[in-house]
Amino acid sequence: MAHYDGVFNTLGLRDWCDAGKEDGPMTMAQLLAQAKGADPNETTGPLPFPSLDSLHDACSRIPQTREMTAGLERFFLDIKNSLKVVLDPITQPLSWMLDGALWLFTTIPWWVLIPMLIALTWYVSRSRAVTIFVALAFVFLGAIDHLEVAIQTLAIIFVCTGLCVIFGVPIGIAMSKNDTLQKGTIPVLDLLQTLPTFVYLIPLIFLFSVTESKLYGIAIILYAIVPVIRLTDLGIRLVDKDVIEAADAFGMTSRQKLFKVEIPLALPNIMAGVNQTIMMSLAMVVIASLVSAPGLGVLVLRGIRNLEIGVGLIAGLGIVLLAVMLDRASKAALNRVDVSRSTR
């Protein structure tokens, strides 16, 4: 006897319930109860929530919860092959880009690469303090033999952030122009932003081989693209309506309006989005090391796995250092484009 037998009996569904009765494998709860020597069908104890499992006890036609998770898994496995046919070629360039960037960054000798990166910092930030800080940080990372891994992480960040901007900004612009699209996209962005970072990896591991670089590339891009989309949308919507009206009154086409008015005026917001995107891809790059992403994350992972406290902490510090470098450099770039400043 189960708790909800009475319900099915009074509804007259007893025959229907028992018609397809077959003994499936026992659940863990049933096993435990059996081990304790109790009758698994006994109706003692408090009334359980009428969940699938407890209804199943009373009527075997009701599926158990484990069948739901199994069904989802089956569904994934079923569509896996056809999905792979489509997704594999589309995402293949990502693998090439990541592998190419990693190869490039690790092949260029350090005495060429580091000055180049410092020059790049100066070019985007035009700030002496930031440039000096970046130079010192590289020297420090080099001195403690973490330069190569840090450079690997940096290469991944560059590729992923670049792609986030390439895809995110147009999506944001489209959203700002179309309210329906915005309403449809926002829940997806919310989902991407709140989904636990590990969960990103689950469907990806099903789809792609763990050794492929695009696996972590996709995970990082999906996670980090959200702020640049949101802030592009917001930035363009916040452009002063009076200025837009003036642009209309002088007969600008929508293309002229977009490139001459809206994007330049939304640029501070878009840059803030890019800054956030960089920070988020840096956060994801550690988790991505679980699925073969090279870089500082691997050392952090080693620290956790083997309890090599020193290795993990130093690698963590290296990531913080990278984060501060990227943040300061992109913020300085943001300040430079800020329209409230007079010189450009």
């Binding site: 200025v243 009206e245 001459k260 005026l265 329209v339």
Partner: peptide, 11 residues
């Protein structure tokens, strides 16, 4: 057209 709030392009 000339506007009350000038509506110049700030950049």
């Amino acid at each position: 057209m000339v506007f009350q709030k000038f509506a110049l392009l700030p950049h």
